[in-house]
Design a protein around this nucleic acid. Structure first.
Lengths: 209, 209
DNA sequence: ATCGTTAACCTAACGAGGTTCACTTAACGC
DNA sequence: GCGTTAAGTGAACCTCGTTAGGTTAACGAT
């Protein structure tokens, strides 16, 4: 746990106190990604990386949870963007859903620590605190419902409740992604193949007829 | 965080030092279930609940991780038993797989904290430490592969790699369970219905023809 | 130039957590 | 009774999140 203390950053000019906030977020994220371990992201380690003292963090975040939440918010935006880009690849509704699924799993596998924070951390914080987070998650889910709905409307999928179907798809994507993130050393078969099998089976299960 | 200090337990008789080990595990498990929060399970809280001092815990467990691991091991045994009981309900392979799935989700929903520990905690401990745990998880997985294989052999499922298919089923079951455990306040549709939809879609996806 | 105000920080400390080390106490065989 | 030793303490160390209160430097006004 090499607490890399960096030289002290100079004081910000008046009216520019918010600059510290960004530096904190960047440092925390770097710490998270490089260590790959949430426990390495301590308030003290963040402060050391930024070049300030721990109490200074509290000028911008009420507590550690809020700091972590801020990181998550930023990542959700990126996540959503990736998913939508995936969904936009094809005009065919089923192929579009498939690409959305690929993008989902890809994001999780490439950003395991973020995925863990976003999707695998229990949130029993009061609802106001995580309103933004919920909103962004809800957006992702709404888009997924939309993608499924288009498959149904196009006649490719049998008639079914899109909400329910979206949950089933989400469960499958999240299930594989979170298993992989949790146990990367499991003897997974070829990953691309697995992903396709997973998507195949669902799309067949939903197919009309 | 009412650190319920219980009256001090008497010293065990000579040769019966291991009795403390069981008391520790029971106390830790009670603490985990009643608080529903992993953070409430501190070494100090466990010791207080047992009626001994924190250092005494280290007579039986090398560190906290090992203690938690021991709880997991006990629960895996129970989990596996539940799954197999579910699988034994029917002679029809597909229905048997379905019951196995129901049992899986049921266990997770009824034991959220245990499920979180068993299936959602990253294990980058050296492999020796978690060998038992891996073994028990592997047993569960082998049984699942068996259940899927019987579906294929019976002709109910199309010809496919059972290993791959088992992973797909596992991902779906784990996906729903872990989502529920992580966000119990999400507006889930009727749970039984969701479970059936989830299983239906997969079984249809695997169906022969 | 310098002074007062105040935004932007820091020092020191608290309590809780995991863990360790040196020490004590009580159960048993003799 | 008496030594041996299994079975346990007590006090401390270090890290962590967090807070209360003090300090300092950037700026506008004079």
């Amino acid at each position: 746990m090499a607490t890399d203390t960096v030289e002290r950053r100079g004081r910000a000019r008046r009216g520019h106190g918010d600059e510290l906030r960004d530096e904190i977020l960047r440092a925390a994220e770097t710490l998270l990604v490089e260590s790959g371990d949430e426990r390495a992201v301590s308030m003290r380690a963040i402060a050391a990386a930024v070049g300030c003292t721990p109490p200074s963090l509290y000028l911008h975040f009420a507590d550690k949870d809020e700091l972590i939440l801020a990181i998550c918010n930023a990542r959700w935006a990126e996540f959503n963007e990736m998913l939508d880009r995936g969904g936009d690849i094809s005009d065919d509704p089923v192929e579009s859903l498939r690409e959305r699924g690929r993008a989902y799993i890809k994001f999780g596998m490439e950003n395991p620590e973020h995925y863990r924070l976003l999707m695998m951390t229990k949130t029993d914080d009061p609802l106001e605190d995580i309103a933004d987070l919920q909103k962004q998650g809800a957006v992702a889910f709404q888009h997924l419902i939309g993608a499924v709905s288009r498959c149904i409307e196009s006649g490719a999928f049998r008639s079914m409740d899109p909400y329910m179907a979206a949950i089933v798809v989400w469960a499958a994507l999240h299930g594989f992604t979170s298993l992989f993130v949790t146990a990367p050393n499991f003897p997974w078969p070829d990953l691309d193949e697995t992903i396709e099998a997973l998507l195949d089976s669902h799309l067949k299960g939903f197919a009309a007829g």
